[in-house]
């Protein structure tokens, strides 16, 4: 049993370490320049945002349009802590996530009683309220934003946080808690008649998702020198939502792929901004027509298990 578990996990471990080494080495050798690295950081942040929103929207079925709001809470908390109080980066990451989680709890408790469209509207409203709050709060620079001179975010931190997000959310989903979340998505009344505490799990998924959105916010704040309220508007929430829908509501690997694809597309077409938006929209329309469930649907990418022991009695050919 234990052996089997190791054999199934090993390919993922190799992939994770492999990607890390390849990027670290190529960037150290100068093959990947700073421009490439900042895009890779953007991809990592997008993955964290996409996977954490997928937990709320895709797996638990609670349609939230306020993910950028939680990201903003993390970003501003992070900026304040490092700039005004000189916190070390790991502590900042944790506090940014916790701050977003607390806000998630406060917002989640009342709004998660709503369903479908109503929840979407309520969370959208929440995102806007936050944005307006930050615009009018001179302590953090108001509409002009807040400058963050400490550029703590680097590839290693982003990579570690991305992997951590995926592992935590995947493990949550594989547990009984995850089954409860999926049951709520499928049918809330049936779920509660199975004895599932639906409010608890909806709020829990919301808090966990918000936490990682906050972590993504801290990473964002320390990667781009400046946080402005405008960066966390409604459009940012939609952008994250697109990652989730494009990748597949209910697929972690789908969100990862979509986050990579969308970032790459927008990077490649940066010189032609108008063409970029057209292609972006076109890609979405095509995916929705041909794969309405998203690229991956509710499936996950499976890697073949590596066999550690020599296969016994393996015979070549038949007599």
């Amino acid at each position: 049993m234990r052996q089997e578990l190791i054999e199934r996990r090993l390919p993922w471990l190799i992939l994770t370490v492999g990607v890390y080494l390849v990027i670290s080495v190529t960037s150290a050798l100068g093959i990947l320049n700073d421009y490439h690295m900042i895009n890779i950081i953007t991809i990592g942040i997008s993955i964290i945002l996409g996977v954490s929103l997928n937990l709320i929207n895709g797996f638990t079925g609670q349609f939230s349009l306020g993910h950028a709001g939680f990201m903003a809470v993390g970003a501003y908390t992070g900026a304040i802590l490092t700039m005004k109080f000189g916190f070390p980066f790991p502590a900042t990451l944790l506090c940014g996530g916790l701050a977003a989680a607390v806000v998630g709890l406060v917002i989640g408790l009342p709004t998660l009683r709503l369903r479908g469209d109503y929840l979407a509207i309520a969370t959208l409203g929440f995102g806007e309220i936050l944005r307006v709050l930050f615009i009018n709060w001179s302590y953090v620079g108001g509409a002009g934003g807040m400058v963050v001179t400490q550029r703590y975010t680097n590839f290693h931190w982003v990579y570690a946080m991305t992997v951590l997000t995926i592992i935590v959310i995947r493990n949550w989903l594989q547990s009984a808690h995850g089954r409860a979340c999926v049951a709520i998505r499928e049918d809330e009344i049936a779920a509660s008649s199975m004895g599932i505490n639906t409010t608890l799990y909806k709020v829990a998924a919301f808090i966990l998702g918000s936490f990682f959105a906050g972590v993504a916010g801290v990473l964002y704040a320390h990667a781009y020198y400046i946080v402005t309220p405008a960066s966390f508007g409604f459009l940012k929430s939609v952008e994250i939502l697109i990652i989730v829908v494009l990748g597949g509501m209910g697929s972690i690997s789908g969100s990862v792929l979509a986050a990579i694809a969308i970032t790459l597309v927008s990077v490649i077409f940066t010189p032609w901004p108008y063409l970029r938006m057209i292609l972006y929209s076109l890609a979405l329309i095509i995916v929705m027509v041909y794969r309405p469930g998203g690229l991956m649907g509710v499936k996950e990418i499976q890697l073949p298990a590596l066999s550690l022991k020599k296969k016994e009695g393996q015979q070549v050919g038949t007599p």
């Binding site: 999926v182 049951a183 499928e186 049918d187 049936a190």
Partner: peptide
């Protein structure tokens, strides 16, 4: 335990 009206099974599972 109640078997709700209209069955309410988890259709995609």
């Amino acid at each position: 335990c109640q078997v709700p009206e209209g069955r309410r099974i988890f259709a995609n599972l």
